[in-house]
Each structure stands twice: as structure tokens, then as C-alpha cells.
Write a protein that binds this DNA or RNA. Structure first.
Lengths: 204, 204
DNA sequence: ATACAGTTTAACCATTTGGTTAAACACAAA
DNA sequence: TTTGTGTTTAACCAAATGGTTAAACTGTAT
């Protein structure tokens, strides 16, 4: 039986900061809003993390790490290429289902301040150094998959997996207004359709 | 020969406001930043548009209108379904190439304040009332295209067309770091790959 | 020239915001 | 009980921010 401990202040802050920063970005977020969300005094934010920027850095770094972690599954060289891509799709869609705002948060902040990406990426990037592009070009060279534009394939794949989650506030309205209930949307259906795309694109 | 007139203040403001609001959102944007970008005195912002909110509304409404305008091409009932979708793809990708941040801007603001969507959508939505979903279900019913999940198809299509532009700050780095030059990216290649997807998905 | 309306500006104001501080609190060791 | 250390709080501060104002400027009609 696990001891039921109250959540440490530091964790409450990180959780709240993640929520608020993801929603409003670095400039738009308000320290008081973070404090309120965490249910603590504002001064505690500065007690645990010196400044707004420092706190933001913690959140952003964590987001980048989690983001790049999703690619680790690609390194499993025991599987054929297509299977690895399928696994990657399952992985990344589950990830986005849990953190739907992550992708937009990272993109927004990078577009506002491109420098921080270079700073943080060395910390965050997956250590194994196996990128989807590498894997695919390997597969093409070995004749395991169709000859494709690997960059465009990566863009298409990322698009299909990311956008449905980050645009869900929009789809929710557009689809509800028009027809079906957006709540019907489930990750498995998305996984299936993305895999069909991959199948069509990679198979010889 | 057209008279070369200096750009009216009001237009300079709208242009600058669009740029700043798109980048930082309603809360993150600073009036002084907008004034500086427009190269005018801050008080002029309030002279032409009463408040920050009012100015933001103008920008957001304009964005929504342009966004929904892209769908008008779908109404051209003289063409077969697939051709209309192809035209729509050309349309919307050209649109995103010109306004890469539009999609994210709308999504972000809607997710922060879902109410404004309902308020504005009636003004902005395309008058002809022809949605992609309608067209597709029509096509399925007539047997003109394969029997598909129309909602999922719409999501996939939007994903393929939108995400490459809104994630370009990320791709720029990831792809450059890894391999090819992101500057090689051009809309025509994207259009082609999206059309291939549509072909594979819709053709019987 | 003069009067007038629309436009632009610098100086200003009230509120909000990130950040600080000193005192209060909690709690374990002596 | 006392001492000491880490945590939390209310009150506060300086700077930034959205917004106002009254005066100055610009051009045009009289």
C-alpha cells in the first residue's frame, strides 16, 4: 500500500506552469495565473525557480525531450522498415493524444525565438541519433521500400499524426456544426488511416 | 500610371497588428510592439481602433473570413468531385504559402476562447454553405468515389495541407540538421503528394 | 490670412506584471 | 523548550502595459 503523500510544491508548480505556458506561450502566460492554477502563493514560483524565463526553460526543455523521445522506437533494427514506421505511428499518436498541445507549443516558441531551439536541441535530441530519414533512405537503398522523396514523406507523416490533435478545437466545431460528433474521433481510427497512407506510399 | 500614395495609417496598423497578433496571440501581443512595427505613435492605435480587443477582433475576423473563403471553390458543381478536391488543394496550399501562420493563429485563439468562434463563424463562414463533407458524401452516394469515412478524410486532407506550413520552423531545423535543405521545399511538390494521397483514397 | 476638421504626438494615468522582502509558519534536532 | 532550517505568506516595489488627454500639426475650404 503506497503512502498517500501530498504533491510537493515544486511538482504542482511544474504541472501548472506546463498548462499555462502551453496555452499562452512565454509572453502571454502570467505568473499569477500559474500560481493560481497550482493553488499556491506567487512568491513560491520565484522561490523554487528564480524567474519566469527559468521556469519556462524547464517546461520547454522537458517538452522537447518528450517530443524527441518518441523517435527512439525507430532504432529497433530487428524489425523491417515498414513495421518500425507502424510502431512509430502508434507511439507518436498515443503521445499526441496525451499531450495534444505539445506540438503547437514547441512550434510556436521556436518560431518566436529560433535561438532557443539550437540551445536546447542538443540536450533534447534522441541520443541514438537514428532519424526517420536515415531509416527510410536505408530502406530505399536496400530496395526494401519504394523509391520516395524521404523528406516529403516525413512531412506528410508528421502532418497526418500531429495536426488532428492540435487542430482539434477547430475540428470539434467544424465537424459538429456539419455532421458527426467529434467525440467519436478516436486515435485508433487515425492510426489506421495513417498506416494505410504509409502502406500506399512505401509498398512496391 | 497609378498614383503612388503613401499607405494610409489605418492600413499600416492593420498590417502590423496582423503580424504581431499572429506571432504572440491576444494576450502575448503588446500594443507598443504593434505601434513600432507600424512605425507610428501608440495613441494612434486607440484613435483608429478603440481598444486592443477591438483591434484584435478586426484581425481575427479577417483571418476567419479568408480561411473559410478557401472553401468556395468546392461549390463549382460543373466539375467531378475529384477535380474539385484537386482544385481545393491547389487553392488552400497557395493560401497557406502566403499566410503560413493563419491556421495556427485561428486554432490557438479558438482553443483559448472557444466562445469567439461561435460569435464570428456566422460572419466568416462561406455563404454558399457547401462543405467538403457534403460534397464527399454526395460523391459516395452517387458512387463517384470510394466509400470512405468522410470526416477522417477531411482531417487527413487538412493535416497534409496545413501542417507543413505551420510546422515549418521545426522542419527547417530538423531537416537541415539531418539532411536536405528545407529551402528546397516548394508548394508544388506538396500539392503533388497530397493529390497522390487523394487519388489513392478516393479512386475506386 | 483664417477658420476648421481630421490627424498625430508627447506626456501622462491607472492597473497589471514580474519580482523582492521581511516576517510568520512548520517541524525536526538538541 | 529552544534552536535552527526550510517553506510559505502578505505586503510591497519598480517597470511595463493598456489607455487617455490636451496640445500641436496638416491640409483644405472660405
Amino acid at each position: 500500500m503506497s503512502k498517500l503523500k501530498a504533491q510537493p510544491t515544486e511538482d504542482k508548480i511544474l504541472e501548472a506552469a506546463k498548462e499555462v505556458f502551453m496555452k499562452y506561450g512565454l509572453y502571454g502566460a502570467r505568473m499569477q495565473d500559474i500560481a493560481d492554477t497550482a493553488g499556491i502563493n506567487k512568491a513560491l514560483l520565484h522561490y523554487y525557480f528564480r524567474s519566469k524565463e527559468k521556469l519556462f526553460d524547464k517546461i520547454f526543455e522537458g517538452a522537447l525531450v518528450k517530443y524527441f523521445q518518441q523517435m527512439d522506437v525507430l532504432s529497433d533494427s530487428s524489425l523491417p522498415i515498414k513495421q518500425r514506421v507502424f510502431k512509430y505511428i502508434d507511439n507518436i499518436i498515443d503521445f499526441y493524444a496525451e499531450y495534444p498541445q505539445m506540438s503547437m507549443f514547441i512550434i510556436k516558441e521556436i518560431s518566436i525565438n529560433p535561438e532557443i531551439f539550437k540551445e536546447k536541441v542538443s540536450v533534447a535530441k534522441n541520443k541514438k541519433g537514428t532519424s526517420l530519414i536515415n531509416i527510410l533512405e536505408d530502406g530505399v537503398a536496400k530496395g526494401e521500400i519504394k523509391k520516395i522523396d524521404t523528406s516529403m514523406f516525413l512531412i506528410n507523416l508528421q502532418s497526418l499524426c500531429s495536426y488532428p490533435f492540435l487542430a482539434s478545437p477547430l475540428f470539434k466545431h467544424v465537424l459538429k456544426v456539419n455532421h458527426k460528433d467529434w467525440n467519436d474521433f478516436n486515435s485508433n481510427k487515425l492510426k489506421q488511416s495513417v498506416k494505410t497512407f504509409v502502406e500506399n506510399t512505401l509498398s512496391k
